[in-house]
Every structure is written in C-alpha cells, then in structure tokens.
Amino acid sequence: MSSTLEIRGLCKSFGGIVVADSIDLDLSPGRVLGLIGPNGAGKTSLFNLVCGVVKPDAGSIRLDGQSLEGLPTYQRARMGLARTWQNLRLFPSLSVMDNLMLGPRVYSADRLVDVLFRPAQIRANEAEARDRARDILERTGLSPIAQSRVQDISFGQQKLVGVARALMNDARCLLLDEPMAGVEGQTYALIQKAVRDIAASGVAICVVEHNVAFIRDLCDEGVFMFAGKVLARGSVEQLIADPHLTELYFGT
C-alpha cells in the first residue's frame, strides 16, 4: 500500500535546539497514527514542517507522491493537506458556519476577477460550500450552534469546530494537534466518532495527543518521538508497555 504522506530524512534545528533529526515517517490511507512523546519532543514542529509553516533544513515530504518542497502553506492545503491547531486558531470574528465556509480547497472567492465578473459562479460555489458545511455540522452535532460566534461556545465545541473546519478541505491527509486536550464528556465521543469516520473514508490521519486512552482507542499505530527523533514505532499497547519509553516520557 502506498503512503499518502511520505517523510524522508527530515531535519530542522533552531540554533542549537534540534526539533527534527532525520525523521522518516509514512502515513497510510485510512490509518490513524498517534504521535506520542513528552513536551518538546518535536511533535508540533513536525506538523509545522509538513504544513510549510517552518522550512526544513534537509529532507523531503511527499503528499500522494508529489513533493511539497518549497510550496507555501496555502498550496499544500489545496493539494489536500489539512490540520487543526493545539491552540485552536479559529476566526473569532466569524460565526461557526462562516469558519467552515472558508475551508474548501477551492473557495468561492479565491479569484477576485470571479467576484467582480462572475457573480453566478460565486453564488453556485457558495451554495455548494454551504451544503457541505451543513452536512459536516450535522455529522459533528454542531448544527444548533452554526450561527454562534466561536467565543460564545464551549471549549470542547471549539475543538470540534476546528476539526469540522479541517474536514471542509476533503483532505487526503489530516493532522490533528491535541484534539482532546481539555475536552470531556459528550464532545469527547463526538470527536472520537468524527475521527473514526474520516479514517474510514480513506484519509491518512496523524494525531498528536497526550490522552493515552484516546490514543489507544483510536490509533492503529503509534510513534514515539523524543528530542526530534522517532525512537520507536509499533502498536500503542507496545509503546505504552515499553519501560524505556515510559521513563523518557515521564522523565523519571
């Protein structure tokens, strides 16, 4: 099975701090990979490298066989890469619905020429995006708060909006940065279900998460990172049971 995302020899350091040390990693379609490791292991930095937020010193990243080298973030997104953020990064001046409306790979108003001279096409694109957003809001249980401002909804719901917004991309590869931090109860179950459904549709997913139960329930496989290195890869049970890794994680 060919990988959706293929990372080879990825290196990055900021001054003396190494955040990525020759990382090789593959994400396969329909599989959920959990990134485990203590704070500062380079998990979020790896996401930033994949998304083009940070430029790597060396190495290659391929999405569906196409190199991402030198491409700006927005082009990577248009190729089918989506992510959520540890600190949410929703748009506070927009409603939940409008947050989602900006998510499709091709946005109705990306080209100003179309806005000015092709109003019919814009209307059609908007209607299509709105239907898609409604569908996703329905599936994630967010429909009742579609018109709310994002700061007026609960933290868990905000996390869910982040996932829902990323879903608008119809992505090939989805990176989730701590989707469960601070989430409890019903929303927890909703996010879990959402991630399962996305994986079932053939999307390659990578999750950074400290919630071990969530990782164990959801991930097909885990990767343990420490000081910018991939130290081990295997089933989540295996990684958790490894006394050496546990020691690194808790620093005992």
């Binding site: 997104a77 748009f91 506070p92 409008d98 409306m101 109705s108």
Partner: peptide, 23 residues
C-alpha cells in the same frame, strides 16, 4: 460578500487562514 469573509478571517489569524488554502 465572500471576499469580505476572507478579509475578516485573514485579519483574525493569517496562519490558520493560509492553512485552509487561502493565499
């Protein structure tokens, strides 16, 4: 219109905005 929605989002958070595929 939709262009205003884009400008608003870009003002709020340019990085998240780019990550959605917007230039």
């Amino acid at each position: 219109g939709p262009y205003g929605r884009m400008m608003t989002a870009m003002r709020d958070d340019e990085l998240a905005f780019s990550m959605l595929g917007r230039n």
